[in-house]
Measured scan of single mutants.
Amino acid sequence: DEDSERELEKLRKNNASKEEIKEVLKRLGFSEDEAKKLAEKAG
Rank of each mutant, 00 (worst) to 15 (best):
D1W: 14
D1V: 13
D1P: 11
D1Y: 14
D1S: 13
E2I: 14
E2S: 12
D3F: 12
D3M: 12
D3I: 13
D3V: 12
D3S: 11
D3K: 12
S4Y: 15
S4W: 15
S4M: 15
S4D: 09
S4H: 13
S4Q: 10
S4G: 09
S4R: 13
E5M: 13
E5F: 14
E5P: 05
R6S: 12
R6D: 10
E7P: 02
E7S: 05
E7L: 15
E7T: 10
E7M: 14
E7D: 08
E7H: 07
E7V: 15
E7G: 03
E7Y: 11
L8R: 04
L8Y: 06
L8D: 07
L8W: 05
L8H: 02
L8M: 07
L8P: 01
E9F: 00
E9R: 07
E9M: 00
E9V: 03
E9N: 04
E9D: 09
E9Q: 05
E9A: 06
K10M: 09
K10T: 08
K10P: 01
K10I: 10
K10N: 13
L11A: 09
L11S: 07
L11H: 07
L11E: 04
L11K: 05
R12C: 15
R12F: 10
R12T: 11
R12G: 09
R12A: 09
R12V: 14
R12M: 13
R12W: 04
K13A: 10
K13Y: 04
K13H: 09
K13P: 06
K13G: 09
K13S: 12
K13V: 08
K13Q: 11
N14F: 00
N14H: 09
N15F: 03
N15E: 08
N15W: 00
N15L: 09
N15T: 06
N15D: 08
A16K: 06
A16V: 06
A16T: 03
A16E: 03
A16F: 04
A16G: 06
A16W: 05
A16N: 02
S17R: 05
S17C: 14
S17L: 07
S17I: 05
S17H: 04
S17Q: 05
S17D: 08
S17Y: 03
S17T: 10
S17K: 05
S17V: 03
K18N: 10
K18P: 14
K18T: 12
K18Q: 13
K18A: 13
K18W: 15
K18R: 10
E19R: 03
E19D: 10
E19K: 03
E19V: 03
E20F: 06
E20P: 00
E20G: 04
E20Q: 09
E20L: 06
E20S: 05
E20W: 07
E20T: 08
E20D: 09
E20C: 13
I21R: 01
I21L: 07
I21W: 12
I21Q: 01
I21K: 01
I21Y: 07
I21A: 05
I21T: 02
I21V: 05
K22Q: 05
K22C: 11
K22W: 09
K22D: 11
K22R: 04
K22A: 06
K22M: 14
K22V: 15
K22T: 13
K22L: 15
E23A: 04
E23P: 02
E23L: 02
E23W: 00
E23Y: 00
E23I: 02
V24N: 08
V24R: 10
V24P: 02
V24K: 09
L25H: 04
L25N: 05
L25D: 06
L25Q: 01
L25V: 04
L25K: 04
K26V: 14
K26A: 10
K26T: 11
K26Q: 14
K26N: 09
K26G: 09
K26E: 14
K26P: 07
K26S: 08
K26R: 10
R27C: 12
R27V: 04
R27N: 11
R27L: 08
R27H: 09
R27P: 04
R27M: 07
R27Q: 12
R27F: 01
L28G: 02
L28I: 03
L28D: 04
L28K: 01
L28A: 03
G29N: 01
G29Y: 00
G29P: 00
G29H: 00
G29T: 00
G29A: 01
G29F: 00
G29Q: 01
F30G: 02
F30Y: 11
F30K: 02
F30C: 06
F30A: 02
F30N: 03
F30P: 00
F30S: 01
F30V: 04
S31N: 07
S31C: 06
S31V: 03
S31F: 03
E32T: 01
E32H: 01
E32S: 01
E32G: 01
E32D: 10
E32Q: 01
D33W: 01
D33P: 05
D33G: 05
D33S: 07
E34H: 04
E34V: 09
E34W: 04
E34A: 08
E34L: 07
E34Y: 07
A35P: 03
A35T: 03
A35D: 02
A35F: 06
A35E: 03
K36R: 11
K36C: 11
K36P: 04
K36S: 14
K36L: 14
K36Q: 14
K37H: 10
K37W: 01
K37V: 11
K37T: 10
K37D: 11
K37P: 04
L38G: 04
L38D: 04
L38W: 06
L38Q: 06
L38E: 07
L38K: 05
A39P: 02
A39L: 13
A39I: 12
A39M: 13
A39Q: 04
E40C: 09
E40A: 04
E40Y: 00
E40I: 01
E40N: 04
E40V: 03
K41F: 09
K41L: 13
K41W: 10
K41N: 11
K41I: 12
A42E: 14
A42Y: 15
A42P: 08
G43M: 14
G43Q: 11
G43N: 11
G43E: 11
